[in-house]
Amino acid sequence: MTAVVTPGAPAAPPGTPGAERPPGRRPRRRLTPYWLLLPAALWLAVFFVAPLVYQASTSVQTGSLEEGYRVTWHFATYGEVLERYGEHFLRSFGYAAAATALCLLIGYPLAYMIAFRAGRWRNVLLVMVIAPFFTSFLIRTLAWKTILSDGGPVVGALDVLHVLDVTSRLGLTSDDRVLATPLAVVCGLTYNFLPFMILPLYGSLERIDPSLHEAARDLYATPATTFRKVTFPLSLPGVVAGTLLTFIPASGDYINAQLLGSPNTQMVGNAIQKQFLNVLDYPTAAAMSFVLMALILVAVTVYMRRAGTEELV
């Protein structure tokens, strides 16, 4: 479209702002991202944010399923929850922290190996890390029942190596068995969330320029110093992302505690699930999930402050 030039008036120089641009074009373009975002944002608002808000109100309601629930600002539910399920919360965070530490210990060498030592096997190894996902994780968790079965080779080996003596003194196992003990639950959690640790670790290790290692070697750094001063600091974003991706889901998990543990190893997830699906006490379930969420939020905030990495997404 050509600009209409009034006769007599000098033609507007090219590039003059405003006048000849068809009106409405700019605002429309400014709205484009909102239109693109709208469906996803609506979906999350309705099925993620709204339920959380509703959950907050549920946690201070009283009533029953037959008579209906009413908001009575019954904050006492929170007190009851903390009193009755304090142990569950402690266990959840303890097991999740232990599993996260183990994941880091086990996952770091593997991620390092894939990033720096694998050569052309790199993609094959990555597929092998993701491959377990292809079998339903419930089936794989049940396989641990076989692996850790009483009198099986793993338990036998641990017994011969006197590992079980140490763990039972720490209260992690009892009576020469691993199944139905905290150790089994932590082992299952570690196993289930290990890929979530390895992949971000690999992501940040892979980005490290190998010539930095050479430079460190040229400057007479021992491998240990190179790792401490070069590799590990550069992999910190991966460490932070991996620990969060492991710790958060692990602390809310109830599958490992249910399948591999005993009534004495129940986590918060088990309690929430029971309240929601069996006892049908929705306010208690809501209060528990809120406490869980708040505690995780606090833990993550403190951790992120200390780790100092904020650009994660």
Partner: peptide
Amino acid sequence: LIFLPMAMPEVVMAASLGTL
């Protein structure tokens, strides 16, 4: 809004959506 669902234990989302 997009980051939150990934940073939340599944059981919390599950229970709140179920309650709704």
